[in-house]
Structures are given as C-alpha cells and as structure tokens.
Amino acid sequence: MIETLSIIVVEKDRDRALLIVDALREAGDYKITVIGEETGLARRIAENRPDLVLIDLRSPSRDVLEELALASGPMDRPVAMFVDRSDTGLTRAAIEAGVSAYVVDGLRPDRIRPVLDAAIARFHMFSRMRSELAATKAALEERKVIDRAKGLIMRAKGIGEEEAYGLLRKAAMDQGKRLIEVAQAIVTAAELLR
C-alpha cells in the first residue's frame, strides 16, 4: 500500500488556506497541514516531514524554503523545487498560476500531478480575484479623480455637470490622452494653485 501523501500549505490568510485545503481534499486523500505563521517556519516544516510543500510564489517566506533544499539543511530528506526539472510544462503552469511547490526528491511524478493540478486551478482563481479587485479599485479611483476635475471645471466656469464633462472629453480627444490623464492634470494643477 502506498502511504498517504503528506502536504504542507504555507499560507497566512486563513480563508485562502481553507480554499486550498478544500481543493486538495477533492483531488485525493492527503494528510494536509496548514502553517500560517512565519515564525520558525523552517523548523515547523522540518518537524512535519512533508512530501510536498505548497506556497504562494509571491510569499517573502519562500527564501526560507530554499534552505530546506540544501542537503545540509534542517530536513534530512533533500527537497527539490517543483516536480521535476524536466517537466517544464507543469512548472511553467504553476509559476503562471502563482504557486510554488517544494517536493521531496524521488517522489513519483504521477503522485504529485493531481496535487499540483488542484493547487494550480485554485491559485488561478486567486490571481483572477486579485486582478479583478485591483481593476475595481483602480476604476473607483479614476472615477473619483474625474469627478473632482469635473467639479473644479464647474466651479471655475460656472457651468453644469454635463457641459464640464463634455469639455473634459474634448480636451482628452484633442490631446490624444486618456480622460483620466487630463482629469489628473487638472486636479494636480488646482492643488498647486490653491
């Protein structure tokens, strides 16, 4: 019988960690441990003797895991980054999704594949959520600046909202600039001249 694969998920955000754990549970029968603390990370991982460690590609703590990849590191079994250096397709998919995996040397690729596939799918979802959130935030910010610029024009020229917006759009078109750029220039100028 093959022993249950032991997986560590390093993730500070509790909700994200739970989502990853759920996805892994669906993918197979694994022993999963979540580490949310950065304190003593290398020691905690070494004590758990995992077969596989999953961590956000952007996590600053990744460099701590590099220590585990050294033969003289705190783990007695050498760890390699990713599945297999030859399987660049899977590695690239993982990188693009924003997940990095540290795998104990000699673990069979067919045992790792389902874990990574599940993690990759989940991390893709995270990065989509992250970029959607960023886009929403940026759109909100732009809206605010445009509204302020509109208000400034309305006050300066004693005109209505629609007319002020029309002037802004015309200026942007004439100068070949984005609306937000013209609005930002007006707001900056107004702050300087205040």
């Binding site: 590609l57 952007r58 600053p60 990744r62 460099d63 590099e66 690239r92 990095s100």
Partner: peptide
Amino acid sequence: AASWSMLRDMLDFGQ
C-alpha cells in the same frame, strides 16, 4: 519581487 527565489524563477522562465 518578494524573494530571491521568485526573482530567480522569473529569470528561469523568461518573465
């Protein structure tokens, strides 16, 4: 980048 490992991966994979 947030870590040297990440920077190295970015070089490795041509990002």
